[in-house]
Design a protein around this nucleic acid. Structure first.
Lengths: 279, 279
DNA sequence: CGTTGTCTGTGCGTTGTCGCACACTGCAAC
DNA sequence: GTTGCAGTGTGCGACAACGCACAGACAACG
């Protein structure tokens, strides 16, 4: 999907350039929206395989949209307009600190949902939700999601499980940010992204990575360079390729596996020490 | 409450000395348990002022217990035996990293509950829940809490609100741990504790603080010393007294107010810059 | 009153990261 | 091609925090 009229980029702050999702809403308005199929639901792990009744109700209220890198899906203090279920996109929750510094506090892929706070009793976002990897999302109006949540069916269960996973992820990040070296955190981050995009090539610059990790661009370049010399990565001009995932895992900190092992649906759980893991 | 037979201390790891709550269970067994009054419920903000029917049901299942410093109420990977609602105690959630390092990821006082994961679909704890400030707690068996949660009444709402608050707290800690200086984080921590104990005197050693902040004891001593010279604190031998709360607030990072302003029940919200805030 | 052990103050070399600067490189627009 | 520029490699001084060490200070207890 391409937009001939490229959306004007609004400068949001020194760091993120907002490419407005709302403008693309306007683009679609009045045209035929792509219809949402059951097959789409299957791509998000919260929505997949719901009981047929829940599927029917939810399906009627979902929209399929494409999101692009740097799209902002929610913002701190701002009412959440939609809840987004990524299908193949990846979204980062980013804290925007006083001095203009940024750090990622959480990562959301097809295992989760953007805007979880609406089911936790707040209609506003807490942090900036920025698209890191473009792709498709299903979205729904907060009220409708909340109503379905209140019914107490399987979706409620899934969402609560996801909240727990998110909490685990964020908690571990809190510990990790305090204790672990940039190199370890970088490896963990790359692994987390790769789990969600399933490809070895990541289209992202060192500077963007630095903003996620709350580090300087130059240090990210240094670490990436070092990992490159070890044959673990190849990185050049906005494209980083993971060459040796196992090595990445053993250079990463334990946090990667701790979070992963707390995942909602039991995956093939692995210890950091065993060092074997590929999706 | 005193225990003549002082509970044998089991060495759990290099850092925390477990004083077993279970042993005190044994102490009480067969004796008259202190009965739980409605007045006790009022001291915890999740349990306070529930509809009378919910109050009645919950009351029947709660136990009142005293917890002491370093009691461990839950542990990572271990089934949660009880959910604890602090009345005047304060509990820290602590991540135990590989190398024996420790960092606090969350703090729980009478605004919350220890063991929130049981309503999020996991019966095991994620981190060590260590009592920092001794006092009273109400506790309940996970199954009973979960059943009441499932009924979808006011308690469900309160617990979900609390989950959101916890998520906000932990997320901000993730950002804070990455970006802010020890001095700022220490001030934030002291403020958070004081909000929960409501007294100016904190009985805690520099070393314990260091474990919470994931810093070295010597650096904590240095920072505390500096704050002491400014007349903000007085600290000596396991006792730290907050002398100038406003100064503490302005030396702390923004994170303190960000979390506080996201609190469940609208408090007197304040900006960090306005610098006026006392409980 | 002295002993013991906990808690705290402080010194010092090391390390990870910052903050800034500047040069190089490959891609894209002209 | 040439130019422009985003993206990257690298250097260097500054600084926060680590890691370790040791001495002083105070409380509890005999």
């Amino acid at each position: 999907m391409q937009f001939s009229e490229s959306p004007t980029q609004i400068r949001q702050d020194a760091v993120f350039v907002r490419s407005s999702v709302e403008q693309r809403d306007a683009f679609w308005r009045g045209k035929d929206l792509p219809s949402v199929e059951k097959a789409d639901l299957a791509l998000n792990q919260i929505l997949a395989d719901l009981p047929s009744e829940e599927t029917r109700r939810v399906l009627a209220n979902l929209e399929l949209i494409h999101v692009q890198t740097n799209d902002i899906l929610a913002e701190g203090g701002v009412p959440i307009s939609h809840c987004y279920f990524p299908l193949d996109a990846v979204v980062a929750l980013v804290a925007n600190l006083e001095e203009g510094a940024t750090v990622e506090v959480g990562l959301i892929g097809n295992e989760g949902m953007v805007g979880i706070r609406v089911i936790l009793g707040r209609s506003t976002g807490a942090y900036l939700a920025v698209v890191q990897i473009p792709g498709k999302c299903l979205r729904i109006k907060p009220d409708l999601l909340k109503a379905e949540f209140k019914r107490g069916g399987v979706l409620q269960d899934r969402l609560l499980q996801y909240v727990r996973y998110m909490l685990a992820q964020v908690s571990q990040t809190a510990a990790c940010n305090r204790m672990h070296l940039l190199e370890q955190r970088l490896c963990r981050w790359l692994l987390s992204i790769q789990d969600r995009v399933k490809t070895a090539e990541l289209l992202i610059t060192h500077e963007a990575i630095a903003h996620m990790l709350g580090a300087t661009r130059s240090d990210v370049s240094r670490v990436v360079g070092a990992l490159g010399k070890l044959g673990i990565l190849h990185s050049s001009r906005g494209k980083t390729t993971i060459l040796d995932r196992k090595a990445l895992e053993s250079t990463s900190c334990e946090c990667y596996w701790i979070v992963r092992n707390d995942y909602i649906y039991p995956l093939r759980a692995r210890k950091a020490s065993s060092g074997k893991g590929n999706l």
